[in-house]
Design a protein around this nucleic acid. Sequence first.
DNA 1: CGCGACATGTAAGCAGTTACATGATTAT
DNA 2: ATAATCATGTAACTGCTTACATGTCGCG
Lengths: 167, 167
Amino acid sequence: MRTLKYAILGLLTEDDMTYADIKEEINGLIGQFWSAKNSQIAPELRKLSQEGAIIYTQESTLYHVTEYGREEFLRWAIRDEACDTIEKDAFCMRLLFSDNIERSQTVQLLKSQIGQHKAKLKYLELSLPLLLKDPSNIGEQLVQKRIISKEQAYIDWLEECLSYFND
Amino acid sequence: MRTLKYAILGLLTEDDMTYADIKEEINGLIGQFWSAKNSQIAPELRKLSQEGAIIYTQESTLYHVTEYGREEFLRWAIRDEACDTIEKDAFCMRLLFSDNIERSQTVQLLKSQIGQHKAKLKYLELSLPLLLKDPSNIGEQLVQKRIISKEQAYIDWLEECLSYFND
DNA sequence: CGCGACATGTAAGCAGTTACATGATTAT
DNA sequence: ATAATCATGTAACTGCTTACATGTCGCG
């Protein structure tokens, strides 16, 4: 589906950016629902250049979206696709088969998960609001809200699980 | 991380199964947090046979987990790994960049998503409880609860989004 | 200079999907 | 029997990650 392609075109539609800018954006809010490593971003930029969707300028080190790139982005933006959130959750797998191991082990795993997710939530609550540069961008605010409440919901569920196993 | 491997070993630890049985389980509850197509299950079964983790019997058409396979599974089951739920959500990407398109288009996309997710929720609420064969399996119940409340939370968020864009 | 740390980029391999091929099953 | 449908499996490709290579910058 080349979703990363459209992330980059979306960013460049708002502004010309350096490689570092793009990386920073993708490691920020975007990374919370569509992560990508350097080693994926770099080839994608090269591919987009070859396809004539973006142009790189040596002197300014800026990537710029072409008219074709912008059109591609806009065509994608209004496309009504089937809901396709892909969630892969290895911890659910462990919990599903937890009757094969000691209850105390499961409790330990749960506590560890809770600790990790609470740390993540704290990080999100601190860092995400800082990324909101333009308060008029409703979409950005709504996505941010979603990321945080999703994390909170996961913690709530983990704690519910813990209470079941602690009896 | 070979999570599919451990899904299969986990299933076979509970009981010997045919290919169809395994497929059915993976398309059921497991598929809600770790989906896999036939074309991934078949090679994985072959690989597990080669590795000596499972044995296939022609006559009974049953897959059976070996002692080595069971040990592998148990080692994995108690492993305390960093939280690594991978969520990829293309709709969040569209919403994030929604200030580039007409508000009415965004409203339309939101309504479509809401419809789709409500249909999915209805399906989950109907089908998942039927899969609960063993009521003593707490893990199964908790995972099922999680799947359904996650879907509900997504719908709630979409409706909140809609109310913002409808003003 | 030259050493270490960090940013950037490449290449190999794993995971997952799509499209297609084969074989079994049912209906006409 | 033959066609249509479904289950099963393969192969090719895309997407993604890991591990590594190169380059650039700050600092002794």
